[in-house]
Structures are given as C-alpha cells and as structure tokens.
C-alpha cells in the first residue's frame, strides 16, 4: 500500500542514501576479497599496516596499488612508480569527464568529492544509474554508493594487512573473476535494451586488445574507451533537455 504521508526532504535523502548503499553491495562483494589480497601482498612487500591502509585511503585504485606494492618490493624508484601510476590511472580522467558531464546540475561541493570517489567499478555502476542525477536528492544516492565502495576497499585492505593470508588461495583466486562478472552483469542489460551499446563495448574491447599488444595497459584502456565511445557520436540519439 502506498502511504499518503508527504515525503519531506529528509526522508528522500534517506531513501536515496539507502538505495545508494544497496546499489553498492555488488561492488563491496567484489572489492572485499581483492582489497584483502592487496593488503596481504602489500604487507609482504614491506609496507607497515598503516602504510598499506593509507595507500587505500589516498590512492584508492586497485590495479595501481598492486603495482605500487610490487614495485616497492623490488626497489623501484619513486618517480618511476608515480609515473606508472599516472599512466595506469589516467582512464579515470575520461570516466570522470563523462560522469561529471552528467552531473552538471550539481554544485562543485558535490561534484569534487564524488569525482574523487570514481573507480572503474563505482563509475560503471553510477553511470548506469544516470537517472538519479535528475531526481530529488540524487546526490545522496551517489554519495552513499561511492562511500560504500570506498569504505569496503579501505576496510578490506586493512583486514588483509592485519590478518595476513586468511583466505584459502583457491578461493581468493576464484574471486579474481568477481569484478569482471560485475562489469558483464552491468553491460548485458543495457545491450539487451539497445544493441548499439554492445557495438560500442565491442569496438572498445577490440581497440583495447590491439593496443595492449604494444602499449601500456593504461593507455590501451584509455584508447579503447575513447575510440569505442566515439562510435556513440554516430549511433546515439541526441539527449532530450
């Protein structure tokens, strides 16, 4: 039964925040095992528990953190590690430009913190809930979603560093598919709705695959995303204002 009670501003904020957390649960499921694995590896690389956790708080980018921990372990220089991180994470610039363009209506006090919460996963999930940008207090949805993912990442890496290898190796290895499966689970419904989204994704895969043969993974993903997205210029309809 629909309650006749008027929703006041506080309750739409709460509802949006609850939806955001619920939408973030699959990211949490994917993040926890990977964050724990990162915590274990980084600790073994010689970082203290505080450093392991601080890297998750300040960098918040899975692949870069694994790479960083590995490179620190083999004694690579700081500049080299930082440049490699920049290359690997530059895709977030493209993703952020896409997401921020959707959030044009929000003030900077929302856009800046939300942009800092963007990862491959939070970007994908948030973008496929683009309708929230037009809803009342949609900011709370995105903020709750981002925070759910962020806090899972931080707590997972802290646990990994603290407890060491808690997961059986066979299980943690199987968990490696989790985020890919989530990406697939996000993409397929959009493709079923509009087949051209599949074309865009397919071109991006192909371009990424070709460039990954002779470029850094980071640049290959950036080029795949940009060139795949370019197909959208020709196949997507103009957005209604």
């Amino acid at each position: 039964m629909v309650t006749k009670v008027m929703e006041n501003a506080t309750s739409t904020k709460l509802i949006q925040a609850q939806r955001g957390i619920a939408t973030g649960i699959p990211i949490m499921l994917g993040y926890l095992p990977i964050a724990i694995a990162y915590g274990v590896l980084a600790k073994q690389s010689g970082l203290t528990i505080a450093e392991v956790t601080l890297m998750s708080i300040l960098v918040y980018a899975g692949a870069a953190q694994f790479m960083g921990a590995n490179l620190i372990a083999v004694g690579t220089g700081a500049i080299e590690i930082i440049i490699a991180t920049f290359v690997l994470n530059f895709r977030h610039f493209v993703m952020s430009l896409s997401f921020m363009n959707r959030l044009r209506g929000f003030g900077l006090k929302w856009k800046v913190p939300l942009s800092l919460g963007l990862t491959d996963e939070s970007f994908s999930v948030a973008s496929l809930h683009g309708e929230k940008a037009k809803q009342e207090n949609g900011t709370y949805f995105y903020a709750a979603l981002m925070l759910t993912a962020y806090l899972s990442w931080i707590s997972g890496s802290f646990l990994g560093a603290l407890l060491g290898d808690v997961m059986p190796q066979s299980l943690s290895q199987s968990m490696g598919i989790a985020l890919y499966a989530m990406f697939i689970g996000l993409l397929i419904p959009s493709v079923k709705k509009e087949i051209k989204m599949g074309l865009i994704a397919l071109i991006a895969m192909l371009v990424n695959f070709i460039f990954s043969q002779f470029l850094d993974t980071g640049w290959a993903i950036v080029l795949g995303t940009l060139i795949g997205g370019l197909i959208g210029v020709f196949v997507l309809k103009e957005e209604k204002k």
């Binding site: 993703m95 363009n101 959707r102 491959d120 973008s127 959009s190 071109i203 990424n208 959208g232």
Partner: peptide, 12 residues
C-alpha cells in the same frame, strides 16, 4: 554518454 559502455568493454 557512450563512455560508460565503452569503458565496460575495455575493462572486460
């Protein structure tokens, strides 16, 4: 607007 779908492809 097409970037999320392209990014998903490239990430997978």
């Amino acid at each position: 607007n097409a970037i999320p779908y392209a990014a998903l492809g490239a990430l997978i």
